[in-house]
Structures are given as structure tokens and as C-alpha cells.
Simulated assay, not measured.
Amino acid sequence: MKFMILIKADKNSEAGVIPDERLLTEMGKFNEELVKAGVMLAGEGLHPSSKGARVRFSGSKRTVMDGPFTEVKELIAGFWMWEVKSREEAIEWVKRIPNPMGMESEVEIRQVFTADDFGPALTPELRAQEDRLRAETTQRLNNRS
């Protein structure tokens, strides 16, 4: 099962405050544990929303809104993508994360859909397309290394 682990933003991450050496060291050790356990698929920190944008969809109209965005508690400061056996295993790993903000903070755990979750709506043709796109993406990533 794949899970996306979402690190919620706070006023410091939104102000562009970079984690200190201690936290970077602790996170590095934790990431090493994740990799050695075969859990970590990806993980990155995100720039503050002031460097981002949102696109609002309304029918065929698209409206671009530049950051920053005001509701800090609704923003994401970083993420991991993990492959684990269960939601419970994801929770156990999250409990071991060094406190990402150094104070009160939240980490959200969200399961990623698989092709099987879409049932008959994912026709054989759409499934073949999905498989082809995943293979192309994997190949592109492997060529970068």
C-alpha cells in the first residue's frame, strides 16, 4: 500500500525559515531508516506558498492565483511517499518522525489510490495507458541517475 505523508506548514515554513542543522541531521537519519527498510519512495520539502500559485477551475475557465495563501494550517511544507503493508504501519513510522516543526505540529497520512480502486471505470484501455505512462515515467527517472 502506498501512503503520502504530508507535513503541515507553519508560520516559520511559510516565512521560508530553513530547518536548522540538528533537525536536518535527525531527518537524514530517519530517511536512512526508511530507505533501509524499503519504505521510502520519495520525499521532499516544499518552498513557501509565496513562491507558488493555485489554478481555480470553473467549467472551461481557469484562474491563476499567486501565493502566498492565508490559511497556513491548510498548507503543506513537505511530503514523503511510502510503500508499507498497512495504514497501521504508516502510523507507526509517522510516530517516529523527528518533530518536523520543532513545536506543536501535525503530519497527515493519506492512502494513494491504486488502479484496482477505480473498478470498472478504469477500462482495459485506460489501465494500459496508465501502465504505459508509469513505465515511461520510471524510465525517465532511471535515465536521470
Rank of each mutant, 00 (worst) to 15 (best):
K11D: 14
M81W: 08
E136Y: 05
F30C: 05
P124Y: 11
T123A: 15
D10N: 10
L122S: 04
E104H: 14
M65Y: 09
L23T: 03
L122V: 06
T114R: 15
K29Y: 06
T25W: 03
G28Y: 15
E33V: 08
T114M: 10
P48E: 01
M65S: 09
S49W: 00
R144I: 12
T137L: 07
M101Y: 11
E89I: 09
E32V: 15
E33Q: 08
V55K: 09
A15G: 04
Q139E: 14
I76L: 12
R134H: 12
A37N: 15
S86F: 04
P19M: 03
L41C: 10
A9W: 02
V55S: 06
E74H: 04
I109L: 04
W93L: 02
L23K: 02
V55Q: 08
G67L: 00
R22M: 02
F57N: 04
S50G: 03
E106I: 01
P68Q: 05
V35I: 15
V112W: 02
W82S: 07
A15W: 00
M81I: 14
E125F: 04
S50V: 01
R22T: 10
W93C: 06
E83C: 06
K85P: 01
G16Q: 06
M27D: 04
E74F: 05
G119C: 11
E14I: 03
M27V: 11
R110E: 11
F3N: 11
Q129G: 07
M1R: 11
V112M: 09
K29V: 12
L122F: 14
S60N: 12
E74V: 03
A53N: 03
A37G: 13
V94K: 09
